[in-house]
Simulated assay, not measured.
Amino acid sequence: MYYGLYISAAGAYAQNQKVEMITNNLANVDTSGFKKELGIFEARQSEAIERGYEQPGTRGVSDIGGGVEFKETVTDFSLGTLRATSSRTDFALPATDQFFEIERDGEALLTRSGNFHFSVDGVLRTQDGDAVLAAGGTPLTLDPSLPWRVLPGGLISQGGDTVPLSIKQVSNFRSLEKVGLNAFRANGELTDVPAELRDVRSGSLELSTVNPMQEMVEMIASSRAYENNIKMIQHHDGMTGSLVSRLLKA
């Protein structure tokens, strides 16, 4: 009886984690370049099998299922819709394995969010104030008093000088770690995108990959599954109380 209670509690906890993930996705439905999270569930063995007291397949009393657990979240790196804007400092990358390089607290990070702007000191920055890096790893800086223009391939031209945006190519998406504010830390090898493959769209933004309708359907399904697990917990608790009451009377 208690085993059923524990399985229901594990199921409720797993669904609660999924609801939190979906909530974060919905909160970023309008965030440029945001990549939604997908939840991965995994079936658990019984406690006895996980502790090594029983072997799976023996058909013993402990050779039963252990419910489910929320194993991990994975990021969907598919390309979001590209939308034209009227800003020259909005950039989009059609290639899904390419990222803009930015700097935060002295650390080089990656982002797909290209809604940049020039600060008063002439540094190209993200909406959260991180410096956008030029090829070579230094912040891309212009003279704010002089005109400038954007050339094909993500090149910024001013006064006869041309500075390319730093565009990095990722070979393994699993090596990317989300660090907040729509940025990633690369734990694997990065390469500079060669000039012939630098397709940088100025005056465009990549939209979030979150589909609000789909996320709401997932939210409703997870909420109902959570409620069903809670009802099962209450049911097991009621049965336990009834059994204890009858034993005391006996």
Results as ranks from 00 to 15, higher is better:
216 M>P: 02
9 A>F: 13
234 Q>K: 13
245 S>R: 14
168 K>W: 10
217 V>A: 07
6 Y>P: 04
108 A>W: 00
47 E>N: 09
175 S>K: 02
144 P>I: 02
193 V>S: 03
105 D>G: 12
90 D>K: 06
40 I>Y: 07
140 L>M: 02
166 S>K: 13
116 F>W: 10
47 E>W: 05
53 Y>G: 10
196 E>A: 13
211 N>I: 01
195 A>Y: 04
249 K>H: 14
55 Q>Y: 11
177 E>K: 08
191 T>E: 14
182 N>M: 02
15 Q>R: 08
223 S>A: 10
37 E>Q: 13
155 L>M: 12
247 L>D: 04
160 G>H: 09
122 G>N: 06
199 D>N: 15
188 G>M: 03
240 T>D: 07
193 V>R: 00
230 I>V: 15
61 V>F: 13
81 T>W: 01
3 Y>D: 12
6 Y>E: 13
11 G>L: 06
190 L>T: 01
193 V>Y: 04
16 N>P: 01
183 A>E: 05
173 F>E: 04
124 L>E: 07
178 K>R: 14
87 S>F: 12
243 L>S: 10
55 Q>V: 11
125 R>P: 05
225 A>K: 08
38 L>Q: 12
148 W>I: 00
121 D>L: 09
114 G>P: 09
191 T>I: 11
125 R>S: 12
202 S>Q: 15
4 G>H: 11
57 G>C: 10
151 L>W: 09
92 A>I: 06
235 H>W: 11
237 D>N: 03
24 N>C: 04
106 G>N: 08
62 S>H: 14
19 V>H: 09
163 V>E: 05
1 M>G: 11
166 S>H: 13
4 G>D: 15
206 E>D: 08
192 D>I: 01
57 G>T: 05
120 V>D: 14
154 G>L: 08
180 G>C: 01
209 T>R: 00
207 L>K: 06
50 E>Q: 15
237 D>P: 02
40 I>A: 06
40 I>D: 01
196 E>K: 13
86 S>M: 11
11 G>I: 04
100 F>A: 03
112 R>Y: 14
210 V>R: 03
85 T>Q: 06
109 L>T: 02
179 V>P: 10
195 A>D: 09
35 K>N: 09
2 Y>A: 03
234 Q>I: 07
206 E>Q: 11
200 V>S: 05
124 L>W: 05
244 V>G: 01
207 L>V: 06
53 Y>S: 12
22 I>P: 04
216 M>H: 05
45 Q>A: 11
14 A>Q: 00
238 G>T: 14
96 T>R: 05
